[in-house]
């Protein structure tokens, strides 16, 4: 999949906004939203929140996890652990990028948060590369990979799946040779 398609999926995530207009409840296909009252928090899918923000019809509240303290703790945990830490959202990379692009002014300490997210993503990617190399070296033919985010999986998909495909093919040939030797 392309990165923008993963972003498309991320845009269905729910965020809280503060509208500056009034409107009745709206019955969207993906669910009911509203009613809208000025400065009353209301939950919307991200794609709609971004659209309203771009029309200057609302302010977006950053998700609970998007604050410096939480992210610093997360970064530390990620640094200390050999495994992958659970992320606050399976779309944390996409949501951060989307919000920073259109609503950075609504997010306190936006620059610091951007940096923290990037650091966390980089830490995880380095771990991922190490894991992948380990998997291939150990001739693994399946693995469990909890706590990876959607964008991270998408980033390594072609590499890991194709490498495992080829490794498996060659392992099968080797197994066949061992079997043939065994039957002689």
């Amino acid at each position: 999949m392309e990165a923008c398609e993963i972003e498309f999926l991320a845009e269905d995530s729910i965020v809280t906004v503060l509208p500056n207009f009034s409107e009745n409840k709206i019955y969207l296909i993906s669910g009911d939203v509203g009613p809208f009252n000025p400065s009353m928090p209301t939950d919307l899918p991200l794609w709609l929140a971004i659209d309203l923000k771009q029309r200057q019809k609302c302010r977006i509240q950053p998700p609970k996890w998007m604050n410096v303290e939480t992210l610093q703790e997360l970064k530390q945990a990620e640094n200390d652990s050999a495994l992958f830490c659970p992320m606050p959202d399976p779309h944390y990379i996409e949501i951060t990028q989307l919000l920073m692009n259109c609503a950075a002014e609504d997010i306190p300490h936006a620059d610091e948060i951007k940096t923290l997210i990037k650091d966390i993503a980089d830490l995880r990617m380095a771990k991922l590369k190490k894991s992948m190399d380990g998997m291939i070296k150990e001739k693994a033919t399946n693995a469990r990979l909890d706590n990876l985010s959607m964008m991270e999986i998408n980033l390594i998909r072609p590499l890991l799946t194709q490498a495992l495909d080829q490794s498996y093919r060659l392992q099968c040939l080797q197994d066949e040779q061992l079997q043939l030797a065994g039957t002689e």
């Binding site: 033919t141 909890d146 706590n147 999986i153």
Partner: peptide, 8 residues
């Protein structure tokens, strides 16, 4: 439930 794997 909720686990992720890579398998054939």
């Amino acid at each position: 439930k909720g686990a992720r794997h890579i398998v054939r």
